[in-house]
Amino acid sequence: MFNYTMKDNCLAKKVILVTGAGSGIGRQAALTYAKLGATVILLGKTVQKLEQVYDEIIANGGAEPAIVPLDLKGATQQNYIDMSSTIAQQFGHLDGALLNASMLGELTPYTHIHQQIWDDTIKVNVTAQHLLSQALIPTMLKADNASLVFTSSGVGSKGRAYWGAYSVSKFATEGLMQVIADEYDESNLRVNAINPGATATAMRATAYPAEDQSTLATPEDIMPLYVYLMSDDSQNTTGQVIKAQ
């Protein structure tokens, strides 16, 4: 997918929600979608970071984004329902949702996993994705071609020592994606997951503090797949976990 050609304005008139939009891959995705014509809804827990992305989109001549400050660890089902209702009222529909926000938790031997870390990681990486999807799908079905994209990991298809709750949560993410994709297979909603691979982000640096990030792909490098799955070119692609690298 490195070779997918991102055509100018290929996302024109689309409304796309990005979670974890304040930094890393989410930030780059939001900037890229806006550059290609989309109106972006920026969801994240740190308002200052979202405002910086907002300002950059405006400075680059993009459509005015919306900001949704929300911490997935503390958000309730009603928060997501209200957000989806507001999107429907303001925009009429939702063309795409990139569920990018995740929590790493801690890398530790399995028997040392702290219960609170386990609970928080599952809440952010699984329960929040489930509740978000439930709330957003009715609004996405109002679009002509809608794309729901989850975020997985290499440890979401093969368990790895010490990755504990994060690995388990990504297995669950892939399962959640497959269930929804199968259920909506005959609809206008396609559902997939991206495995971004080794990418230079703050989360990656936390997991691999000794790694030279200059040797890794940047968030910008992996954007072709992120754009492909939001564009109409992918309207027949569903139920897949696709590697960005």
Rank of each mutant, 00 (worst) to 15 (best):
F2D: 09
N3C: 11
Y4R: 14
L11P: 09
L11D: 11
A12P: 01
K14H: 02
V15H: 01
L17S: 12
V18W: 09
V18D: 01
A21Y: 03
G24N: 11
G24H: 07
G24K: 05
I25A: 09
G26D: 05
G26A: 10
R27H: 03
Q28T: 12
A29D: 07
A30T: 05
T32G: 03
A34Y: 00
G37V: 06
G37N: 07
T39E: 09
V40C: 02
G44A: 10
T46F: 12
Q48E: 15
Y54S: 05
D55Q: 13
E56V: 02
A59G: 00
N60P: 03
G62W: 00
E64R: 09
P65G: 07
P65D: 10
V68E: 14
P69L: 00
L70E: 09
D71I: 05
K73R: 14
K73L: 15
G74Q: 10
G74M: 04
N79L: 04
Y80P: 08
S85D: 15
Q89S: 14
Q90Y: 03
Q90I: 00
Q90W: 04
H93C: 04
H93L: 05
L94M: 11
D95L: 06
G96L: 01
A97H: 05
A101E: 05
S102C: 07
M103L: 14
G105M: 03
L107Q: 11
I113C: 06
I113V: 15
Q115M: 10
Q116M: 06
I117S: 03
D120G: 00
D120K: 01
I122E: 07
I122A: 01
K123E: 07
V124F: 05
A128P: 04
Q129Y: 01
L131H: 13
L132P: 01
I137K: 03
P138E: 12
M140H: 03
L141C: 06
K142M: 08
K142L: 13
D144S: 12
D144N: 14
V149N: 14
V149P: 09
S152N: 11
V155T: 13
S157K: 15
K158R: 15
G159M: 10
G159N: 09
G164S: 13
G164W: 01
A165Y: 08
F171Y: 13
T173K: 01
E174S: 11
E174W: 04
L176P: 10
Q178V: 00
A181W: 09
D182I: 01
L189F: 05
L189H: 06
V191G: 08
N192I: 02
N192V: 02
I194S: 08
G197I: 08
A198I: 00
T201R: 04
T201E: 14
A205T: 13
T206Q: 15
A207C: 11
A210N: 15
E211S: 09
Q213I: 08
T215R: 12
T215K: 15
A217C: 11
T218M: 12
P219N: 10
M223D: 14
P224M: 03
P224T: 06
P224W: 02
L225P: 13
Y228T: 04
L229P: 13
M230N: 05
S231C: 11
S231Y: 02
D232C: 10
S234F: 09
S234H: 03
Q235F: 06
Q235N: 11
N236A: 06
T238C: 06
Q240D: 11
K243M: 12
K243Q: 15
K243W: 14
K243D: 15
Q245W: 15
